[in-house]
Amino acid sequence: MEFSTLCNRIFWECILAYRKLGNVDAPLANPFAASTIEARLYEKNWIDNVQWDLEDIIRDPNIDPVRALAIKRRIDQSNQNRTDLVEMIDSYFLERFSGVVRRPDATLNTESPAWAVDRLSILSLKIYQMQQQAIDLTATPEHRASCQAKLDVLLEQRADLSQALDQLLQAYQNGEKVMKVYRQMKMYNDPALNPILQGKKN
């Protein structure tokens, strides 16, 4: 099975499970064994589902400012968790291709595999949400048609990204690409690097 097929299948399974609950506070019930790549992919998409809903909630023009700030803090933490999980997925790829002998003409890639996986996860969410709009019988025919056109583009985009990811992984396996990862080193959540968290003025 191509890796993108595994990703897309797990992401869709996770979306359907989360949407049955429809609650940002619902506990994650991961059906896969802990620390496996399948579990990482499921958790990654769950984080994206929760954050999608939090981003919707915080845009309520009538939201209480105190609640909005609490949600903003939660989104910040979610972004950190998302980044940490992407880096765990990249560690999986680093291990997977650690024994590959690079060709002398091996090239670098602008994006690591896990960040492509991240984009696939979010694309799956966009597809689900646009699909719901396209089949909403309470909406106007014009609205449904517009959403269907957007859905078609999203499906094409997912197919292209899936193919590109699988081609990249094959290039790593063949030694045609150099598997190299730079950690994000986000500064805003780090008390040692964020002057505000240190009580200093920037």
Rank of each mutant, 00 (worst) to 15 (best):
P65A: 13
K72L: 00
Q173I: 06
E111T: 15
V101A: 11
E2K: 15
Q132A: 08
W12P: 02
I196N: 04
I15D: 13
E87Y: 00
G175F: 00
A29Q: 12
R119K: 15
D90L: 01
P141S: 05
V24T: 15
Q132C: 07
A114E: 03
V181M: 08
N49C: 12
I57F: 12
N109G: 14
L54C: 10
P191T: 07
D48Y: 01
Y188D: 14
E95V: 10
A134M: 09
G99N: 06
Q129V: 04
R9I: 10
V66A: 15
W115Q: 15
E2W: 14
A134E: 13
E13P: 09
M1N: 04
Q132T: 08
Y172K: 01
S112G: 14
M88T: 12
A34K: 03
W52I: 07
H143C: 06
L169R: 00
T83G: 08
A139V: 10
D25H: 07
N194F: 02
T83S: 11
D152P: 05
Q167D: 14
Y188N: 13
T83I: 15
P141K: 08
P65S: 08
A192E: 01
D136N: 15
S121Q: 00
I15K: 08
N194R: 06
K186P: 11
L197K: 12
S121W: 00
L41M: 07
E38T: 10
P27M: 03
V153E: 13
F32W: 03
P27K: 03
L161A: 05
R74S: 04
A145M: 09
A39D: 01
L85V: 01
S146D: 13
E38P: 05
L151S: 05
A171Y: 02
M179C: 13
H143R: 14
A116E: 13
L85K: 01
F3L: 04
N8A: 07
